[in-house]
Design a binder for these strands. Structure first.
Ligand SMILES: [Zn+2]
Ligand SMILES: [Zn+2]
Ligand SMILES: [Zn+2]
Ligand SMILES: [Zn+2]
Lengths: 146, 146
DNA sequence: TATCTTATTGCAATTCAATATCAAGTAAAA
DNA sequence: TTTTACTTGATATTGAATTGCAATAAGATA
């Protein structure tokens, strides 16, 4: 899905939900769809401010959360760090470098596991989704710090 | 590992690392080792305050983080929620109820997956650990809210 | 185009978890 | 008992995110 298609989706969903397409909202989404990284609300805010000096941080936070609810963004949160957002809606998982903290998208297939029902006291819980996080040291850090 | 063994480990590791066994530290650890739930620093603080009215919250935060570094506690953080701690050091994963937010320990074996090296731009990254989170609706919520 | 409705914005104040600072206190070794 | 390094409590501060509200403006309607 390229930038134009993503932007069209923003337009469609906004119409569908009776949301208004403000310049602020479009700037925020454009920044995210033009980046291939996972950005925090503050990073988006800092970038958007260059074009919109009077933009409020609250607007950025509000919009990005709303875009997640609308299915326009996926998000990835870890405690201690700010929530990260991106427009990559493909099913994917994440690799997190323990050294530099950078997050990499990884594409995993055939994720399987066996659940020990005896030890796990889940009863009849309904399991919907599983998220797998890989931790390690990224290539950059391996090269630079051994 | 029962309570006594856990407490002995606290004593051993403290000696080993030149840490002092203060009453506050022992109270904090005792509360955690007597609970079978994942507690937040504030929950531990509230419980400990009943016996130690002049205990400071900072002491609880400090100690619990220190216990993680010392290998006495495991912790589980999700953005937006306070860090949760417990004395369960067995290798385990977590099930999180999307409805009530409660966290359940689950024991998984044979966790496997296939990594798409083409799409995942990890290069020669060294992968150490994988953490699997299961999401769904817990038994309690299923019973109470359909 | 002018008007209306209501989503949205900007701002400031606020929440909440967590951390930093530092003087005073104390566990444990010598 | 003395010494010393680790800890504590109180308070201030940080950082991320949220909230309340009056003012604004997008998009529908006439
Ligand atoms: Zn790295
Ligand atoms: Zn991602
Ligand atoms: Zn539940
Ligand atoms: Zn656990």
């Amino acid at each position: 899905m390229n930038k134009e298609e993503k932007l069209q989706k923003l337009v469609d969903i906004s119409r569908e939900k009776g949301l208004k397409l403000t310049p602020q909202r479009m700037a925020i989404f454009r920044i995210l769809s033009e980046s291939d990284k996972h950005l925090t609300a503050d990073e988006v805010y800092q970038k958007a401010r260059k074009d919109y000096p009077m933009l409020s941080a609250a607007t950025v936070y509000r919009n990005m959360e709303q875009m997640v609810s609308s299915g326009l963004l996926s998000n990835l949160g870890r405690s201690g760090a700010a929530m990260k957002y991106d427009t990559n809606l493909e099913e994917h998982h994440h690799f997190i470098c323990s050294h530099c903290g950078k997050v990499y998208d990884v594409y995993l297939s055939k994720v399987t596991y066996e659940l020990d029902m005896e030890k796990s006291r889940l009863g009849d819980a309904k399991i919907d989704v599983s998220e797998l996080y890989l931790y390690g040291v990224c290539e950059d850090c391996l090269n630079n710090y051994g």
